[in-house]
C-alpha cells in the first residue's frame, strides 16, 4: 500500500515535471537592462537587521512568552519573503551568467563565469537558510546562515556594480536600487 501511494505521488510529480520541461524552463534575461527589470529589490541591510540574534535576544528578555512567539513567527515569515525574492534573483543571475559566459568578448565571458559562480554560492547559502528558517519555526534556535547569505548577496552586488561601472555606467543607479551597494 505504501509503495502504491508513493508510486502514485511519483507519477503525478513525473507528469507535472514532463509538462514543465515541455513548456520550457525559466526566464532568460538577454541583457543587463532586462536583468535589472526582472530582479526584485532585496534590502540586505534590513534583512541583516531582521535576522540579527541581538534583536531576538532583546525581545526574548523584554516581552511575554506569547508576544515573543508571535513576533518571532512574524519575523520568520518576513525572512522567508526575503529568501524567496533572493532565490528568484539568484536563478535570474545564474541564467544571465550562463548567457554572458558564451559571449565572444573575453571580458564579458569572464564576468559571466564569475557571476555564475557567485550566484550558485548564493543559491546554496539560500537553500541552507530556507531550511534553517523552517527549523526555527519549531525550535527556539537562532536563525542560521544569515551571515553567509548577506555576504554572498553583497558579493554579487559588488561584482555587478564593478561590471556596470566599467561597461554600463548609466545603469549604476538602477543597480544600486536593487542591491543597495
Amino acid at each position: 500500500m505504501i509503495f502504491t501511494a508513493l508510486a502514485g505521488l511519483m507519477l503525478v510529480a513525473g507528469i507535472l515535471v514532463v509538462i514543465r520541461l515541455l513548456a520550457g524552463t525559466m526566464e532568460h534575461p538577454s541583457n543587463l537592462m532586462e536583468l535589472l527589470d526582472c530582479l526584485e529589490p532585496v534590502n540586505i541591510a534590513s534583512f541583516r537587521h531582521l535576522a540579527c540574534d541581538a534583536d531576538d535576544h532583546y525581545l526574548k528578555a523584554n516581552l511575554s512568552r506569547t508576544e515573543y512567539r508571535r513576533l518571532r513567527r512574524l519575523r520568520l515569515s518576513a525572512l522567508q519573503g526575503y529568501y524567496y525574492c533572493a532565490f528568484r534573483n539568484s536563478a535570474l543571475l545564474l541564467s544571465y551568467g550562463t548567457l554572458l559566459a558564451t559571449n565572444q568578448h573575453p571580458g564579458f565571458a569572464q564576468f559571466g563565469h564569475e557571476i555564475r559562480s557567485a550566484a550558485i554560492r548564493l543559491r546554496l547559502a539560500l537553500l541552507r537558510g530556507v531550511v534553517g528558517a523552517w527549523i526555527c519555526y519549531i525550535t527556539p534556535l537562532d536563525i542560521p546562515y544569515w551571515r553567509q547569505i548577506t555576504d554572498c548577496y553583497d558579493q554579487v552586488g559588488l561584482q555587478l556594480s564593478l561590471f556596470c561601472g566599467s561597461n554600463f555606467p548609466e545603469l549604476e543607479l538602477a543597480l544600486a536600487e536593487h542591491f543597495w551597494v
Partner: peptide, 28 residues
C-alpha cells in the same frame, strides 16, 4: 539550483520521463 537547461536536454529528459511514468504505472 536554478540551472537553466538547453532545449535538447529538456527533450531527452521529457522523453525519459514519459517512458518512466508509463513503466511505473503499468508495473504497479
Amino acid at each position: 539550483l536554478g540551472i537553466k537547461w538547453t532545449s535538447a536536454v529538456c527533450g531527452i529528459a521529457a522523453g525519459l520521463g514519459v517512458m518512466g511514468a508509463a513503466d511505473l504505472f503499468v508495473y504497479t
